[in-house]
């Protein structure tokens, strides 16, 4: 079982912090309009940032993936634990991609697409760029080797 790169926590924390700040800004606006003390929005923002940090830490701890002989297995989730098996024969195509945040901390993700509806795209975040493109190449090779004429 592989863990993600530890730096992924920075991305998650950043993302939730931005969300918390936006929320805080909105709450500040409301407080100003209602002429309420600004301690409430400030407290809310801090609370959400702290929650975001805790969530990110647990999320990192719970994230596991492994590329097996015939399937990719992923385990993740804090409140709801999700375990997914993606059979290699079902892979339609594989992306590796880097968002602005990911480039900032030098990480990348690999996204695996299937024809399914619910688990149609499975993202493995927190990979180094090299690892992401290696994984993409490897999955591509495995998917072709597993071969099936019509994956639907």
């Amino acid at each position: 079982m592989n863990a993600l790169h530890p730096r992924i926590r920075i991305i998650w924390i950043l993302r939730s912090a931005i969300g918390a700040l936006l929320l805080g800004a909105a709450a500040t606006g409301v407080a100003l309009v209602l002429d309420e003390p600004l301690t409430i929005p400030a407290g809310l923002t801090v609370l959400f940032v702290v929650l975001g940090v805790i969530h990110a830490i647990f999320r990192y701890r719970n994230w596991r993936y492994v590329v097996g002989d015939d399937a990719i297995y992923l385990e993740r989730g804090v409140l709801t634990e999700i375990r997914t098996e993606v059979p290699l024969v079902r892979i339609q195509h594989v992306d590796s991609r880097r968002s602005a945040f990911e480039r900032l901390v030098g990480l990348a993700s690999t996204v695996v697409y299937t024809a399914g509806s619910r688990g149609a795209d499975v993202t493995i975040p927190g990979l180094t760029p090299d690892a992401a493109s290696d994984l993409r190449q490897r999955l591509k090779g495995l998917a072709i080797a597993a071969g099936e004429e019509d994956a639907v």
């Binding site: 709801t80 999700i82 375990r83 059979p87 688990g119």
Partner: peptide, 11 residues
């Protein structure tokens, strides 16, 4: 016909 198998456990 199965595409993926998903196992979820909420809190």
């Amino acid at each position: 016909r199965i595409q993926t198998v998903i196992d979820t456990r909420t809190i």
